[in-house]
Design a protein around this nucleic acid. Structure first.
Lengths: 253, 253
DNA sequence: ACATGAATATTGGAT
DNA sequence: ATCCAATTTTCATGT
């Protein structure tokens, strides 16, 4: 897994190391160094000298990590051009990308460590509790929202956006459902209001609107009331207090 | 910068290493290993055995990186609880967090490398081209949007959200500006329409609406036309074709 | 290539 | 603590 490693290389050694390993197949290269980072593209930024972990993956993605946070200080997704060179005695890494046109340039002032890793691809990954999954679950069991619902459509496109769930209630009234996998905010309410308004215009029928989410913010609930819309609590994941729901998977000892 | 390092440690050695270094001050710990990762919280996920780089920062944030992409396979921002233990002969790392309640659990099957780094905090970081900066620039030079504008307010709160820029045009007509630092989409148009509608209701005056952005999507432009709203091109960054705009900073040889 | 919308979004700021 | 809005959002997906 650890392919190669160099402690405290000088600029020449660093450049040679990167030249050798950057082109390689499934190689992840890391550099721990004091460096300066400049970014120009969608925005522009300058990071003065500091200690960072620079991570270069085989797909051309770059990230520069500081001492805190999940988010890198600087990054570049899927760059098409990675160049390393000696410039005035210092190793300089330039990562470029077309579309959008942007660039990260890293000057290595003092390198503590450079290493090349070989990461075999993980075999399987499963995620549960996405909004897409919620949508499927509710479409096949609309009683979770309300008894007597008949689902007419899922992800129904309108000229103001796609309606998550479109149905008719037990009384035959049209119902638009806006789905959120996390706590619903005012934005969700505005979205719903837009859809409901459009459906009313198009059909000429009365239309109910429901935000379905595990929770609502207080202002969002007030906005719903003001607009004559509704909230229904729906959870994205099976209740973890009830371990029988998904035996094995959620049983974390 | 490289505080400590262990190649191919067994489970005991790994646990001891982590116990020693995880508590330490400004310490970033990395583990390169074949492992399994389980996450339960806002959603839930399982990653089967694969090679990953696990990064633990001093602030309690965790990320698990695979062979590609800027985004980690699994992560946890600012966890409050990090525990490492031996479980059936294997090192197991558990990272927990309250609010929201969630957890990542990593079982290390075969560890290639563990290292503790000490990253001194970077001294300075400057970002240019944010929307906030655009707002300040336009507020102090509204002529960039249109001649004769008088700015009435910035970030004006209404009950349907905050208006980026509120002004009166040369003819004295109210004008609502929705600002976007990147290409404006239909979402921006809907937002603007909402603000304009609300301001019309409240003031009873005619109100113009403008999306100001470096570009618009074609559907968004159509929506603007349909709603009687306008688009104005405004760039977030000084033109990089004109290197004199910001001498030095944008001059990347 | 363009446009849209979700995300375990993360993060910072305001209330 | 809660809520909102920006983000170099990234990323997958559909057209």
């Amino acid at each position: 897994m650890v392919h190669d490693q160099l402690l405290a290389p000088d600029a020449h050694a660093l450049v040679a190391f990167l030249d050798e390993h950057l082109g390689e197949g499934l190689c992840l290269v890391q550099i721990v160094a004091e460096c300066e980072v400049v970014y120009v593209g969608r925005a522009a930024s300058v990071a003065d000298a500091g200690d960072f972990v620079v991570m270069l993956k085989a797909d051309g993605s770059l990230q520069v990590h500081g001492y805190k946070g999940v988010k890198p200080v600087n990054w570049q997704p899927q760059a098409d051009h990675v160049v390393v060179a000696l410039d005035e005695g210092q190793a300089v890494l330039t990562v470029e990308r077309r579309s959008p046109e942007e660039m990260v340039r890293i000057v290595f002032l003092e390198t503590a460590l450079v290493q090349a890793l070989h990461l075999r691809e993980g075999s399987g990954f499963v995620l549960m509790g996405s909004e897409a999954e919620m949508q499927r679950a509710l479409a096949s069991a609309p009683g979770l929202i309300e008894d007597g619902l008949t689902v007419l459509d899922v992800e129904l496109p309108t000229d103001v956006g796609g309606i998550d769930l479109f149905a008719r209630d037990a009384a035959g009234v049209l119902l638009v459902v806006e789905l959120k996998r996390a706590k619903a905010t005012q934005e969700a309410v505005h979205q719903l209001a837009r859809y409901v308004g459009r459906v009313r215009e198009v059909t000429g029928e009365p239309v109910r609107g429901v935000v379905a989410a595990p929770a609502v913010t207080k202002p969002a609930l007030a906005a719903l009331a003001r607009l004559g819309l509704e909230f229904r609590e729906v959870t994205a994941l099976p209740d973890m207090e009830a371990p029988s729901a998904q035996p094995g998977l959620f049983a974390v000892p």
